[in-house]
Design a protein around this nucleic acid. Structure first.
Lengths: 400, 400
DNA sequence: CCATTATGCTCGCGCACCGAGCATAATGGT
DNA sequence: ACCATTATGCTCGGTGCGCGAGCATAATGG
């Protein structure tokens, strides 16, 4: 979301941007719904839509008969030659590259498993896919947005435990100097999508938390990702909620991280630190119904999760907490422990109506949707629209 | 700060709002500086300023000779009959009521000590001052903004340890149904002013922390206070950084609160819990240079402060941390302990260039400035300006 | 088949910003 | 004292864009 600008000339495209943002948020709206939502007169709507069609930013299609009375209103959709963003998802084992249009529909998609997890190999593979995507779709690709399972600062991965990366710049993924490259933590971007389009839709302040190996997440306020000054915000797992004698791989001690994931449960069971804490956690969760020791470990992690969430709610005051990954499994396996920890961690005045803890609804596509949203946030700005106008005008001149 | 609006008719006043917001942020700008900052043509500036003068929103005065060449540019100031906000500060021992004009200058000011600390007595006293303020200044008072040393939700104080209040609505301070009443935690509002006008000026993401009794603070992003869904955000003192067996008066356990203030130092010295932890802390700090036990207690609190700040920096990724209250004294008395704790709490990738910890610059007026800023944020909006236009038109008609 | 309902389009209006050209008010060298 | 230089302000016609009234269009339903 763009902030009010304090610069007058930028007022010009505000109407068009309002329409495009609304369309992006609610793909498939009819024109009359749009006009009502934005308080547009029908004359303004006509004019705006015509201008945006001319700019190849949106298109109208006849909508399915509504059954109601009155003249049917056309549905607004992304223009078939409109702007796209290229979204990349790099996780522990796989990569995905997708072209996404306004509204969030995936236009093209490729994916694969890493054969070699070294940064150069992964980036080279992905870079080639982005190049191919751009060859096919040309100037329509307005930005590249990467979701990666790592701590991110700017466009650099500073550390990725599961990938084994440290200080890896993702600048090689930028296909050209004038294409914006955005890099974000996968949990943060999934949180963005969850808050805007998932369980948090319509809620002003949403805290999203996910447990995989460690705890990630982000606070989303008014649809804005609060990922800090450098994009490295949301590392809630590295708040020192835990035993200060426990050393975390991040370099600090007592991190909350170490109390809630597979490492925590293995430690409590007296097992050595697992190679793959995610799978270890799943095994322990599966064993819990019949193995009291496993159940105790699950309960301990569930309680630590709840208590930490309580502390974060004290500090950040969200209206809703969305949970993802292992946090959902822990809540399902030991709901009473999570709740007991949560309530114990809350300041007492909050216990009357604490923000609900709900599982996220978007699943593994959340990070793609979030990365696409983050990218469209940079496209749907005054400079973004002006650049698109120039670019599409050139293409049309060349074509005619 | 207002969010982009998605409603077209609101575009109308955007230019005027941009001017007013700029003036509020930089009182004493000249017209030509304004035009440059906002990228206005001189024609637009003429028009805008004339309109705003007619609306009694700003005025021009001849500026002191700059010494430079060229035609001198008039200085823009708040209009002498322009809008004001009524700011109230309620702290442990005192109350203050001030009328503040655009730009932040205090126009009128009264204050006193509480004779009776009961909510009814304090609120009644303050209510009468607000009424007097409104009698003198009439429709010019556009909002009432209260900074109170308490946890706040909406316009209600949910708990105030030092005042001894619980669940006290401040609605009685609203002088009329149509006057906006804003209530905020004093530390949060001081942080807002610090981030906008103090040590954090120009920095996009600022974390402000203050230690008095417990820890308060707030994150300010792009000049926006992140005080959560209900205004109760910023209770960083109630993150469970500490010993989980310690019970906090807030109802949770292990709060960071309990490790850094006068209670923490007294506990470490084997003293009973002090009645007035703030003064106790000052005594211990004063004794530290010659008393090793006091020094150890100070060092312990300093280290706990640093470690917690490190954790918060991990989670929130500010570019700057501003400190206020006892946190400044602890940093001065035991800088190495604060720094050691801070570095130990940071994720290692952050240790290269961690955000600086700096003392705040605004002092005890910060909370007044912050409350005024929060109030002007509601006045400098499209509805606020439209209401002012109607109101000032009525007054002028009545006057002529 | 036409009343009803909902929506879209045309067109004149007005607001607010732009830019070019001219006016104004200071400095500073001769 | 005068005038070139510099910086700024004002006037005025042009334009982009949203508004609203009135008319046109496309569905439903008795």
């Amino acid at each position: 979301m763009e902030r009010p600008t304090h610069r007058m000339r930028d007022l010009r495209h505000q109407g068009a941007l309002a329409v495009l943002r609304h369309l992006h948020r609610q793909p498939g709206v009819t024109r009359s719904e749009l006009a009502r939502a934005l308080d547009l007169s029908s004359g303004s709507a006509t004019d705006l839509v015509a201008r945006l069609k001319r700019l190849r930013l949106l298109d109208e299609v006849a909508s399915a008969p509504s059954g109601g009375r009155g003249r049917p209103s056309p549905t607004l959709v992304a223009h078939p030659a409109g702007p796209l963003v290229c979204v990349v998802d790099i996780s522990h084992e796989r990569w995905r590259v997708a072209a996404v249009e306004l509204g969030g529909r995936i236009v093209q998609h490729t994916s694969g498993r890493h054969v070699d997890r070294e940064p150069d190999a992964v980036l080279d593979r992905v870079r080639r896919e982005i190049a191919a995507c751009r060859r096919r779709l040309g100037h329509r690709i307005r930005a590249v947005s990467v979701a990666v399972a790592a701590t991110v600062r700017g466009t650099e991965v500073v550390q990725a435990a599961t990938l084994g990366w440290r200080r890896v710049s993702l600048e090689p993924l930028r296909p050209a100097a004038d294409v914006p490259l955005l890099v974000g933590n996968d949990a943060s971007l999934a949180g963005l999508a969850e808050a805007r389009r998932g369980a948090g839709a319509g809620v002003r302040v949403v805290l999203h938390l996910t447990v995989e190996v460690g705890v990630g997440g982000v606070l989303v306020v008014d649809g804005d990702l609060l990922d800090g000054a450098t994009g490295a915000g949301g590392e809630f797992g590295h708040l020192p909620f835990g035993d200060p004698t426990l050393r975390c791989p991040c370099g600090a001690t007592g991190c909350w991280d170490l109390l809630v994931d597979g490492r925590a449960m293995a430690r409590q069971l007296g097992q050595p630190a697992p190679d793959d804490p995610r799978t270890a956690a799943e095994h322990i969760l599966a064993a819990a119904p019949r193995d009291p020791a496993a159940r105790a470990a699950v309960n301990g992690a569930a309680r630590a999760l709840g208590r930490g969430v309580g502390g974060l709610v004290n500090a950040l005051d969200p209206a809703l907490v969305t949970l993802s990954g292992l946090a959902v499994d822990l809540s399902a396996a030991a709901p009473r422990e999570v709740d007991a920890g949560y309530r114990a961690g809350l300041m007492s005045f909050r216990r009357g109506q604490p923000p609900p803890l709900v599982p996220s609804t978007l699943g593994p596509d959340g990070r793609i949707a979030g990365a696409a949203d983050a990218a469209f946030d940079t496209v749907l700005t005054v400079p973004g629209i002006e650049a698109w106008s120039r670019s599409t005008a050139r293409v049309r001149e060349g074509a005619t």
